[in-house]
Design a protein around this nucleic acid. Structure first.
Lengths: 334, 334
DNA sequence: GGAAGCTCTGCTCATATGAGCAGAAATACC
DNA sequence: GGTATTTCTGCTCATATGAGCAGAGCTTCC
């Protein structure tokens, strides 16, 4: 025993099976940092063949290269989304199992996105909710300077977690040394007349005017079900939501319920909803839609496929759903 | 909407956090196949910095490159084993979860190894057991030509799965167009005298002589517990094994029980065991030890750390155990 | 059996990349 | 506050690598 430790004799020599050969080549290249030339010498093949084998191994997925980091993104998926839906941009983070809450990571991604956004928006129109609040939290102090933040849909004062909406707007503004303009109105009113009256009030009209001229929008969406914040806040009854769902509602954007085709489900209700219209989002140059989680796949699809946003920030599973790459159908059946 | 789809504006511009920067660089390089130069342009840094960031990302494990294949190996671990224990060679396969039985994959690796072994052994001494049988199965027809296979320890005729030992040897030989020489003797005899008598028998002596001059050995090891094949076959009683364990036995190599230091546990018993001695394995130029599975970590350690083999073929978890990289201690405590 | 296609091979050459180095910047230390 | 030491930067240059191509070897189809 105690031979001179050779350099792993087992790897030299001729391998016939081409797949196995690709595996050995990949190991020597990626694990042992050998040059393609050295590998060629070792395995008795030309260095060009080594190169080709390596390319093949990557294509076939024998070599898997993964970027593991809480703030990692999925560039190829982003590109697919941009191309498929004609988006100006897309941000997709891995859905990865344990590593931190999905909502938080998507929030972080959205925060990063608006921080890097050029030109810096002078006025940023935002919705409110759990997701937006997360984005606000994740924004860094001084993420921009002098940005005016304006709410684009009615507030949620009745809510138990009252003030969240206001806090979100205020925090985003404060962290950019700007100031927030709140929309002092309920989200949905009982009568059209009241809605029209409040909209024509100087203060409200001014805010809406400001909102409609914002240089960028940042918003999320709600799911059409009992647990919606709009139910929670008393704007709608559980029965109302059931009715909306029956009519095809998949969720709400800035308080407005849409179906899978991106159309308003209940025009009567919509008439009583205060805030930016869907078309204003649709025609906006920069409208950033932030969405995370399985529950929101349907709304997300309605929004993205119908051009309501120009940028989407989401998780990989949602992106896959948008691209029809998932097998949700299969999963749903049983 | 329907802006001209830009190329992902979100990635351009300045990033301050150096780790995040490394992540973005890695994504552009590995996911988007951009050149370091292009990435530099995009992120406003020099291409050398991109290169350095990339190297750093690999070191820190942000970029993880994995070779996924049933026959993949763990070259860095193999090297560690060679260096640490002065082995001539080592073969380590990933322990990976689902993909096929570990035993089978280690068997395959051992089969690959002896197939590629140069110079081709004229005589190959083998032990028998579940592991060796697996190796025999995995060998390809024509893996070598004209190899004489010889058993190096007593057979297992009493066994219910009688003939396994013989079949293993025969199959390995047949697949190399060679022939097998069996050791026609029990593994352990009741009296020393009988053992000496049988060893001096012309036939047996001839086989042992042949075995001791084999150009390579291939063997596995057993665990010292009730389920040992030696108990199964009736050579030892469960009580015998308990006693051996009490004396420090961790397992058996070619029928001989050793402790953690690689020493014979019970010289009396050893005297009655027919087959190659431990020193002959230790001094052999090529002695290949094949071992797989959690249960055998202790025997494996006894064999490898005490120089009983010159080559080890095993799974990653066992290798980690040999290198003290595991936290078995922690796991065992509770 | 032979031509037409196909894949596979080894090559040239342009490009991408890493090692190594000297100066710049940042940090630690007196 | 200044100097020593470390880390970081942008560079030159040698090397490693991929694209593209022409010929070899293979299959396929009449």
């Amino acid at each position: 025993m105690l031979l001179v430790p050779a350099r792993g004799l087992s790897l030299e020599g001729v391998i016939t099976d081409p797949e196995l050969l690709a595996v050995r080549v990949a190991e020597l290249y990626y694990d042992e940092n050998k040059t393609q030339d050295e590998i060629g010498g070792l395995l008795k093949i030309t260095r060009w063949k080594v190169g080709r084998l390596l390319a093949q191994a990557r294509e076939q997925g024998i070599v898997r290269i993964e970027i593991v980091h809480p703030r990692a993104r999925r560039l190829p998926v982003e590109r697919a989304l941009r191309e498929r839906f004609g988006l100006a941009d897309a941000v997709v983070i891995p859905s990865g199992q344990g590593e931190g809450d999905l909502q938080t990571r998507v929030g972080q991604a959205a925060a990063d996105y608006i921080t890097a956004l050029r030109p810096v928006p002078r006025t940023l129109g935002i919705s409110w909710g759990r997701t937006l609040s997360e984005v606000a939290d994740r924004l860094e102090q001084g993420w921009a300077t002098g940005v005016t933040v304006v709410q684009i849909n009615g507030g949620v004062s009745l809510n138990r977690r009252a003030g969240t909406a206001a806090t979100t707007a205020a925090m985003i503004a404060q962290k950019a040394n700007g100031h927030a303009t709140l929309l002092p109105s309920p989200a949905i009113l009982e009568r059209v007349e009241t809605k029209e009256a409040i909209e024509s009030d100087r203060t409200v009209a001014g805010v809406l005017e400001l909102a409609s001229r914002a240089s960028a929008y940042l918003y999320s969406a709600g799911v059409a079900n009992q647990s919606s914040v709009l139910v929670d806040s008393g704007y709608l009854t559980p029965a109302d939501v059931d009715e909306l769902v029956r009519k095809g509602a998949v969720g709400d954007v800035v308080g407005r319920y849409i179906d899978a085709n991106g159309n308003i489900v209940d025009p009567g209700l919509d008439e009583r909803t205060v805030g930016l219209g869907l078309d204003q989002l649709r025609n906006a140059k920069v409208s950033i839609f932030v969405v995370a989680g399985r529950a929101k796949h349907d709304v997300a699809r309605a929004i993205v496929t119908n051009g309501l946003c120009s940028v989407v920030v989401t998780d990989e599973a949602t992106a896959a759903s948008l691209l029809d790459l998932d097998n949700e159908q299969v999963e749903r059946k049983p």
